[in-house]
Design a protein around this nucleic acid. Structure first.
Lengths: 171, 171
DNA sequence: GCAAATACGTGCAAGATGTATGTAAATGGG
DNA sequence: CCCATTTACATACATCTTGCACGTATTTGC
């Protein structure tokens, strides 16, 4: 989380953990497998946080705003953005990386789009969900690297608002 | 481009190039520096292709469609997406990676947004450009990993259309 | 024509990963 | 309660990789 997985050697890891490399390779197949476990833990922490913040919100639109805010909140943990958005795709591959973040509010997003755009095919909804999810990720990334949180939150709400309320032609 | 930078050792590289590792380390500071050169070459190839395809299109809206199509075309080169969108951020860092892709049509995108949303602040336009650019990137990524090209092109046009024609409130 | 910079090639040293091997502790069936 | 098996480590090693130091040939420029 501090220096990145490439610059973290297994001897450093086990030293901090107070065990030996033997223990590490007993519990994990290789260094990538250990990284996978860490990444899954971070992804779950984010998903749990979003769940907590949206559980008691009944109105769908309010829930999406709450979920969006919770997502940005969770992404403020130092190193989390780089770990999940930059390192995970490179280390674990695209498929695993998207599976990790699949839980992070994209369901709510898809539901909202399905409701707002009833005339579109599920494939189209899926693609849109993916693209908006990518925009969320980029916003978090930019914020993590010094971008203005409020500005990106605004732009993101602008984007989602346009798509949900926009007059898109049927496919 | 075929197996990724992490699984490509410098002895393999120089063997294919017909030189020794000494030559490599004479021309490049380290392996990352070599990767940087390759990534810059790929980014330039994409930018050039987009330029060629949009140079003769006068209508702004048509130019943006042409640019979008050219972008997706250029991203079909095997390995290019992974190199630029997955490995570059992890290897070169976020700042360098965005600088690399900054040229890839994001200027046209920003111009289009500025024209369509004259009441918004430049910061807001910049953020929106970034988010839409991220959506473009994700679309290319999904297409590269087996996603339906036409579906993602459609969704992307839907997204851009909504933002350009949407009724977003002023900030 | 010569000095300096450039363009390589060779050899080496440090470090990293993964695996093979050995040992102690926990578990579970009879 | 005892023994066998599995689990949970630790140690040592072999392989690979990177980057640097050093040596040499070629080109450049005054």
């Amino acid at each position: 989380m501090e220096v990145g997985v490439a610059d973290t050697a297994t001897p450093d890891i086990v030293r901090k953990a107070g065990v030996t490399r033997g223990a590490l390779y007993h519990h994990f197949a290789d260094k990538t497998d250990l990284f996978r476990a860490v990444a899954q833990g971070e992804a779950k922490a984010i998903a749990d946080h979003i769940d907590r913040e949206t559980r008691d919100v009944t109105d769908p639109e309010m829930a999406m705003v709450a979920g969006s805010n919770a997502f940005f909140d969770a992404m403020l943990v130092p190193g989390r953005v780089r770990l999940l958005m930059e390192e995970a795709p490179a280390v674990l591959g695209h498929a695993e990386a998207v599976a990790l973040t699949r839980a992070n509010g994209s369901e709510e997003l898809r539901d909202g789009l399905t409701e707002a755009l009833p005339d579109h095919t599920p494939e189209h909804i899926d693609a849109l969900t993916n693209l908006l999810s990518a925009a969320f990720d980029r916003a978090a990334l930019e914020i993590a690297y010094g971008g203005d949180l409020a500005a990106y939150k605004d732009a993101m709400h602008h984007l989602v608002g346009d798509v949900l309320g926009g007059s898109a032609k049927q496919p």
